[in-house]
Every structure is written in structure tokens, then in C-alpha cells.
């Protein structure tokens, strides 16, 4: 994690004054004593050999309805719904490499950048500025790059 001292550029970003004005205060609150109890709750579940939950606590009626629709669809040979996926939830994590965040691959990140974003000169300036910061932070000799062009 970056410390405040090594991160002055991030903490005093004059390019985004309104964002900076809003600050970094954590607005989310938790029930009293929540963090005192959480380690115990997790330990109990681990000791009881519980599998991770499948996030359907609030969705029982919906899941029942979906099951009915799915059954009818299958009866008529329709299998559009078979791609409903919960592999990530049901399979225990084995190693770092097994946690594939395919949804966050570069292409997905770039796909979220719209044509309007790219046409926005203020955004272009911000990205350029950040690229320069990156080159400076990493002591990259810009003249070497220019010579390669």
C-alpha cells in the first residue's frame, strides 16, 4: 500500500478539484461490534467445515420461479438457460493463479472507455499527464524512446 508521504501526487491532484473537495472519508458504517465478532463467526464456519454460501439468501422465490421456467423450457427442448454459472462460487480456491478475474482483463477495461471519453480532450490530457508521471516515476529516459521512434 502506498503511504501518504509517498503519495502526494495522488492526494493533492489539482486536475480534479471537485473530487478532491469531497475527500476520502469512509461513509459506510457497520453494526456495533461487527469487527470484533467477524473473526469468531468465520472461525466457527471453518471449524464446522462449511462450504462458502451461494448468495441466494434473498432470492429464494426468484430461484424457485426460475427453476420452474427452466424445467418447462427443458421440456420443450429449449436450453438457453443452461449457461447460468456458479463455478467460481462452488469451487474452492486452490492457488493464486486459480482465481481468474476474466472479467477484468485489459480488453474489458478498455471496452469501458467510450468513444466520447476518447474525444474528450481533458481526459486525453489527464492520461498523457499520467503517462509522463509514470515515465518520471520509473526513471525512464524519454530521449531513448524518442530515438527508437
Amino acid at each position: 500500500m502506498e503511504t501518504n508521504n509517498s503519495n502526494t501526487n495522488l492526494n493533492q491532484d489539482e486536475r480534479f478539484p471537485n473530487l478532491e473537495k469531497a475527500g476520502r472519508k469512509n461513509l459506510f458504517t457497520v453494526p456495533e461490534g461487527y469487527f470484533n465478532q467477524l473473526p469468531g463467526t468465520i472461525a466457527e464456519k471453518i471449524n464446522a467445515g462449511k462450504q462458502p454460501v451461494t448468495y441466494n439468501r434473498n432470492y429464494k422465490p426468484v430461484v424457485l420461479g426460475l427453476s420452474l421456467i427452466l424445467a418447462i423450457a427443458l421440456m420443450f427442448g429449449v436450453n438457453y438457460f443452461r449457461t447460468i454459472e456458479n463455478k467460481e462460487v462452488s469451487q474452492p480456491v486452490i492457488s493464486y493463479q486459480d482465481i481468474h478475474l476474466t472479467e477484468l482483463e485489459d480488453q474489458v477495461i478498455y471496452d469501458e472507455i467510450t468513444v466520447e471519453d476518447l474525444a474528450d480532450t481533458t481526459i486525453q490530457d489527464a492520461v498523457k499527464s499520467e503517462m509522463y508521471d509514470y515515465l518520471i516515476e520509473n526513471n525512464t529516459d524519454i530521449s531513448l524512446i524518442i530515438n527508437e521512434l
Binding site: 491532484d13 486536475r15 480534479f16 478539484p17 471537485n18 473530487l19 481468474h100 478475474l101 477484468l104 482483463e105 485489459d106 477495461i109 478498455y110 469501458e112 472507455i113 471519453d117 474528450d120 481533458t122 481526459i123 489527464a126 492520461v127 499520467e130 503517462m131 509514470y134
Partner: peptide
């Protein structure tokens, strides 16, 4: 699991949109 370049672009566009 995303490249540094993609993350920088993504962050700055996000910050600009929020601004």
C-alpha cells in the same frame, strides 16, 4: 490481473467522469 497501462487509463477516465 490487468496491465498497469490499462489501469492508469481507466482510473483517469473514471476520475474525469466523476469530476
Amino acid at each position: 490481473g490487468t496491465s498497469v497501462g490499462a489501469l492508469k487509463a481507466s482510473y483517469h477516465i473514471a476520475a474525469q467522469k466523476i469530476e
